[in-house]
Design a protein around this nucleic acid. Sequence first.
DNA 1: CGGTTCTTGCAACCCGTTTGCAATCATGTG
DNA 2: CACATGATTGCAAACGGGTTGCAAGAACCG
Lengths: 165, 165
Amino acid sequence: MNNPCGQHQHPHRLIQQPLDELTDRLRRHSRRVTGPRQAILDVLRRHQTPMSNRDIHAALGQGCDLATVYRNLHTLEGVGLVRRFDLGDGAARFELVTPEDDGHHHHLVCTRCSLVVEIDDCFPPEFEQSLAQRHRFARISHRLEFFGVCSRCEAGESRPGPVEA
Amino acid sequence: MNNPCGQHQHPHRLIQQPLDELTDRLRRHSRRVTGPRQAILDVLRRHQTPMSNRDIHAALGQGCDLATVYRNLHTLEGVGLVRRFDLGDGAARFELVTPEDDGHHHHLVCTRCSLVVEIDDCFPPEFEQSLAQRHRFARISHRLEFFGVCSRCEAGESRPGPVEA
DNA sequence: CGGTTCTTGCAACCCGTTTGCAATCATGTG
DNA sequence: CACATGATTGCAAACGGGTTGCAAGAACCG
Ligand SMILES: [Mn+2]
Ligand SMILES: [Mn+2]
Ligand SMILES: [Zn+2]
Ligand SMILES: [Zn+2]
């Protein structure tokens, strides 16, 4: 409905960035292109919803140590290749970010089956700006996630594990 | 600016509920009025911003075990005396809730000094409703928190501990 | 007042995440 | 293309918020 916070001319999630482009970005930030890093990026580029460290580690199938996954996602976040999300359960999630897009967007999470729907909409930026002015805050940003029960779960077919409200 | 999600006729945070009223609410939910519970409620009623378990435990000054604080906040949340918030650092925060108000609101957090400003504004409910319809989700709700740098921190006087972005 | 049931304190434990350390590897330099 | 060197990895131990089993200690009811 609204323009997603100013950015988002295109649905970034449909794009699948080539792996070489990603590793190039790594090099440009003087980070080494290692096996684990390529593997992690490759896992991420073929997923459209945010993945946890554990998810990624599992998808890697014994490809590298869990600690390495944690360290690398931290690094990737630092270099801006990846964006961190907090969907309310205790675990951080990550999504690849395109160079032209800062990746700001939101999610709609099913509290029963943990299904995640990508949301591009956002409230108008004036809202946030007015808050910033009113309270004299600088460099303001926000974090917004939606929760509910997806149609399948509402219909009764509970399946996997739940999430908090 | 906007009507805060439909509720919030009054700035609930300015009210300081009498302790007896709170313990009465406990009894009405057939929960025992114990020392630790009164102490916790008393700490909460004289604070306007959300407190973590650790905060409360500290404010209690060795009044009761930390595990008891955790258990009681869980209980208090369950009976609707308290509302849980997630300000992005790993720790849950709690605020007292008035009987007429469900406590839904948001916060503006300084990423440098952790100052928390209470925010009553919210985007119009139609926004959320349209999302629910579009994705066929039921019982939809949201979690929204703002982050930025408060004027004091922006001016240079960094003081206590920071928070994530 | 006495019994029943709820609560508490304590210590052990869970889970996501971080970290120290020695071994290994990616890179640029010659 | 071989090397030196600092970045990166694997492993295991440590962390921090939070939970839990258990026996002792209250609330509350009659
Ligand atoms: Mn997403
Ligand atoms: Mn608040
Ligand atoms: Zn679902
Ligand atoms: Zn500040």
